[in-house]
Amino acid sequence: MIPPAFEYARPETVEEAVRLLAEAGDEAKVLAGGQSLLPLLRLRLAFPELVVDVGRIPGLRGVREDGDTLVIGALTTHHEVIRDPLVRRHAGLLAAATATVADPAVRHRGTLGGSLAHADPAGDLPAVVLALDGELVAAGPEGRRTVPAREFFVDYLQSALSPDELLIEIRVPKADGWGFHYEKFHRVAQSWAIVGVAALVRREDGRIAEARVGLTNMGATPLRASAAETALAGADGPDPVRRAASGAAEGTRPGQDASASPEYRAHLARVLTERAVLTAAGMG
């Protein structure tokens, strides 16, 4: 199908982009890599008056360190994230999960910032950034503000960004020394995760000292499996991990679609959490 008509702007600075967004009110869409937006436009599920192509704004692409924090430009592509040595060293979970996103051609064009701003709970990366306790930096007419990932994902396909804000970078605390694993369950290679589990585990003395578990596609937003996280503290082997993981679906509200029922998703969340944590903890 064919996208509806729209005006097009290609700002060269963040400030210009923000101004364009502010002028357009609710009627603009940000175009980064376009791998989420273009299918929406083609299926005529979105009708923006203005598309603001931020893809060439300098300085929004690449990864740098800021003390104990990794700063990833919003326009950094999936392809780059997977291969970036800093990401692999300090946020291996993000690299591993990104490698499961879509396919190589989409990963060449799609960006981390785009995936997060799209706020699709079935996308792999929102739950990962949530598990990483990441922060998202938005630029708006009033300047910049930093939003914790826990507050960023507001509802289905809805982020905390206001229409005049642009996501410019993602900050994640370095997870050096944490074990990690992204467990994705999908029916065919191309399909969305029925459920995904992003696990980060810090071990001390052979026990799990701390665990963070992000859930993909278990509700209208990505979620943390808080009850399981709490119960995982102190777990020292597969049996305690299994018991702790049995609470992974608490507080979730998974949906029904052609691939899975809520009940099955809750079951998967428990099983996959167990697997992801065991793998991340090196206990698997």
């Binding site: 097009y8 175009l31 376009g34 192509d53 392809h79 989409v106």
Partner: peptide, 13 residues
């Protein structure tokens, strides 16, 4: 030099 799905790229991009 990198593969891309030309149905998901605008000509202006």
């Amino acid at each position: 030099g990198a593969s891309a799905k030309s149905c998901s790229v605008l000509a202006v991009q």
